[in-house]
Design a protein around this nucleic acid. Sequence first.
RNA 1: GUGGGUAUGGCGCAGUUGGCUAGCGCGCCAGAUUGUGGCUCUGGAGGCCGUGGGUUCGAGUCCCAUUACCCACC
Length: 379
Amino acid sequence: MSERFTILKKEGLAKRGRFETVHGVIETPVFMNVGTVAAIKGAVSTEDLERIGTQVELSNTYHLHVRPGDDKIKALGGLHKFMSWNKPILTDSGGFQVFSLASLRKIKEEGVYFASHIDGRKIFMGPEESMRIQSNLASTIAMAFDECPNSKAERKYVEDSVARTTRWLERCKAEMTRLNSLDDTINKDQLLFGINQGAIFPDIRIEHAKRISELDLPGYAIGGLAVGETHEEMYEIIEKTVPYLPSDKPVYLMGVGTPVNILEAVERGVDFFDCVYPTRNGRHAHLYTNFGKINLMNAKYELDDSPIEEGCKCPTCQRYSRAYIRHLLKAKEMLGMRLCVLHNLYFYNNLMTEIRDALDKGCFAEFKKNKISSMMHEE
RNA sequence: GUGGGUAUGGCGCAGUUGGCUAGCGCGCCAGAUUGUGGCUCUGGAGGCCGUGGGUUCGAGUCCCAUUACCCACC
């Protein structure tokens, strides 16, 4: 075992932790920066990531498999070398993409048949394929291949789907163990995180959590949330599920979320996060600040000479004004997106730093209350 | 100066042989977006149809005049 999760401090269910990996230490709670195709969208380099305090980069198995091909990345020495990033990388299994992007998919016991969204060619992906791809990519943490059922799916469908996801997880573990023992495997210490499913049925979630906890994996994720249910339903599921996952392992809430979602989830015991919001919203001029979200495309910023947020330490706010960035966005200059994405990622990374500081000092509850009230306040 | 053309929300345009609350794209404003297809979607505000007359039950559409701009020619 190469990894170690140490809980440094607790406040209620909230944990201040440290996750040690072969690629370095991850201080938790952490927000992983999403770079699906081994690139943070918006012309952000790994050099930039170092500058804005990124701890973990997240890439995607499905996307890298269809282009450029995981075999090529392996030939080039693995994802770390390929993209020149030596800190931890988490790869998502491709399970979610198979359901959200691919068309003509057919789910079977062995895996999923579907058509590539790039060129339409037929692809098969099952637990073993996903593990092999992720092993080729040589990420720090590999995610289990799961099915993410629709949030409105009927109980019977979810039960069957979750049972299959459990069987898939056992196959993932066996395959990962095998791959990690092979001589030509780049990262023989690759870690596998299991994924809890069950839509919004608490009892299915709990049963599944108990079941996968027996597999004694280095970490566990809660998947299938923030896909259409209300915030209240999401918080309720987190609250009811986390107690049935191993208390000495990190919990990762997949694809979530807004700054408020993160604060609420940390309070309920979540340690890892990722979300496309800071990057996607950055590309669309929606910027996060401590006084709420602003849309820089609004006409009122045309002559605004101030930075996105007064006092912000991000590379963008150090030099550029709202009026200038707005102009770049209007002119569709790539630099506009880049500056916005840098600001948003810095904001998220910094939010996590503040959360960890508050946990260290034992004042998370108060920090959370003040932060939310500040962000609800409009400029 | 002569001939021709165009004038419709901030910009670019549609508006059938005159007929019901004048449309569209962009822009503007406000939302949505949660294990990313550099998107997409949903609302909203904004026009006395260049100006003045006329014909008609009824004119953005027809007639006259006038103004501005564009193109040719002198």
